[in-house]
Amino acid sequence: MTEKLVYVLNGPNLNRLGKREPAIYGSQTLDDIGAMLEERGKTLGISVLLFQSNHEGDLVDWLHEAEDAGAHAVLLNAGAYTHTSVALLDAIRSITAPVIEVHLSNPHTREDFRHKSWVGMAAKGTIAGFGAQSYMLALEAAAGL
């Protein structure tokens, strides 16, 4: 069986997980989440590549790279760019690899400005509100695509 490649892209401030507002985002770090994804990926036949940047253009570049690398899927937690980035919307629409939008918290239970997702307009689906488990659920969904 050939391993499937899944890119996991993380946007601004997600490098602060474990320190930033743990009541909202939990106490696990992005490295903790990455290790969980890699472990589960092995059982699913998935190779996971984890990236994080506070810069919008990096996320756009990695979406393009995922496509060029033949990624089976992309898990994208765009952080605050979810609600502001037409560039990410356009980048997702420019690739054929399915993108699964991921959020630790549930944006619909938070401030009004978080209720609109530019990413969600082009994503295959969205998994939100389950903390670090959101990533694991998204990986399971990606495996089933």
Rank of each mutant, 00 (worst) to 15 (best):
L145A: 11
R20G: 08
I100F: 13
A80V: 05
D58W: 05
A66P: 10
T82Y: 01
V48I: 14
A122E: 12
G70N: 08
S94M: 12
N13I: 03
E21R: 14
Q28S: 08
V48G: 03
T126I: 15
T29H: 01
V6E: 03
V60E: 06
N13C: 07
S85H: 11
G70Q: 10
A97Q: 12
N54K: 02
Y135R: 06
S47W: 14
G11A: 09
A123Y: 08
G79D: 05
L17R: 05
K42V: 10
H72Y: 03
E67N: 07
S27C: 08
I24Y: 06
F113L: 10
N13Y: 09
M136V: 15
R114K: 11
A97L: 02
H55V: 11
G45D: 08
A73V: 12
V99K: 09
V119R: 00
W118C: 07
T126H: 09
D90E: 15
F51M: 00
L104Q: 10
T96H: 14
N15C: 11
W118F: 15
V74M: 04
S94Y: 04
A87N: 03
L63D: 07
V119M: 00
I92R: 00
H103P: 09
L63E: 07
G18N: 04
A35Q: 13
K4S: 13
T2R: 14
A132I: 02
L14D: 11
D90H: 06
M136A: 13
L59N: 02
V102T: 05
G125N: 04
V99L: 11
M1A: 14
E67K: 06
K124E: 14
D32P: 03
L37A: 04
G120E: 09
S105T: 13
A66E: 02
S117Y: 07
A80T: 08
L63V: 03
E21V: 13
E111C: 01
A143F: 06
S53E: 04
H64A: 13
I33S: 05
M121T: 13
M121P: 00
